[in-house]
Computed example of a mutant assay.
Amino acid sequence: MDLLVLFLITSTLSMAIAPGTASETEDRHLLFLCRYFPWLWCCRYGVLGRVCHYTKECRLFLGNTVCSGGRCRCAPGYDQISGKCVQPKTIDDPCTSDQECMATILDGICNPTESQCACVEGKVEYNETTCGEPKTIGDPCTSDQECMATILNGICNPTESQCACVEGKVEYNETTCGEPKTIGDPCTSDQECTATILNGICNPTESQCACIEGKVEYNATTCTGNAVA
């Protein structure tokens, strides 16, 4: 049965439906119609793709639709998900199903605890519509966002296409880049000092970069030789 005929039938039946928002009314129209006419095409296969003449024919049964090219389709700015037309989701947007997030977010999922779009387990947010593998220094990359997601002061080196430290920073560990240290600089870990000081260490008593035991300061970034007794 053509949607135009269904439109006329439902327009009459809709008087028996309680008022509500446009979206709620559209849903009730379809539920009411399918309760009594379950054999109808729109009840068996959905509205999208069905032949139509006017947009109202589509919207009477499904919100956020238009009649375009003689077929019911999702309106501009909406995506088809599970037979409905919904707005594209980004990370942290509210959601009720994984499909809502997966439609526009690579490796996205609907976090059941927070009811928000998030990355699937084991992936990290590159940007609001992309989740991917966590990166470390030296990993291959195609964009800065891939490296910045898990590397402090990280960047994608365009020459080598590998994650690296931004200019002026040095590698403390595989996920941290920081200021170059010299002997006497404040520190919180050995890695900060060893990144730029040969035989350096973070003195836990003074929280300053120093030479490891048995070595002496040769210059600001080098400890060498043996300490004189």
Rank of each mutant, 00 (worst) to 15 (best):
I197Q: 08
C117F: 15
S14Y: 00
T90W: 03
I212Y: 12
N127E: 04
T224P: 13
Y126V: 09
T113N: 11
V216L: 07
K215R: 13
S207T: 03
E114G: 13
C223F: 05
V120S: 06
C177P: 08
I201K: 14
T150F: 11
T130A: 14
N173M: 04
D190F: 04
G225Q: 13
C119V: 12
P19G: 00
E217Q: 15
G46C: 01
M102H: 12
K181E: 11
C156R: 01
E160A: 10
T25D: 01
P76K: 05
L33D: 03
C67K: 03
C147T: 09
P112D: 02
Y36N: 03
G154F: 14
S207I: 01
I17W: 00
K181H: 06
T130N: 08
S161P: 10
C119M: 09
I9S: 03
L13S: 10
T182E: 07
E24V: 01
L198Q: 15
G200A: 07
C202V: 00
T12P: 06
N157T: 09
N199V: 02
G184R: 06
G200W: 05
M15F: 03
C156M: 09
G178P: 08
S207R: 13
G69Y: 02
L13P: 09
T175L: 10
S97Q: 06
E114F: 11
C211I: 06
S82W: 13
P19T: 00
T104P: 05
T150H: 07
S82M: 05
C141I: 06
R71N: 03
P140Y: 12
Q80L: 02
L30M: 00
A149H: 12
G132M: 12
I197P: 00
G200C: 06
I155R: 14
C58Q: 01
G184K: 07
A75G: 02
C223G: 07
H29M: 03
M102K: 10
R50S: 05
P180T: 13
L198E: 15
C165G: 10
C72D: 02
M15P: 00
P158C: 08
D27W: 07
R71K: 07
L8E: 15
I9A: 02
L13M: 08
K56I: 02
S11G: 15
G20I: 01
T150P: 01
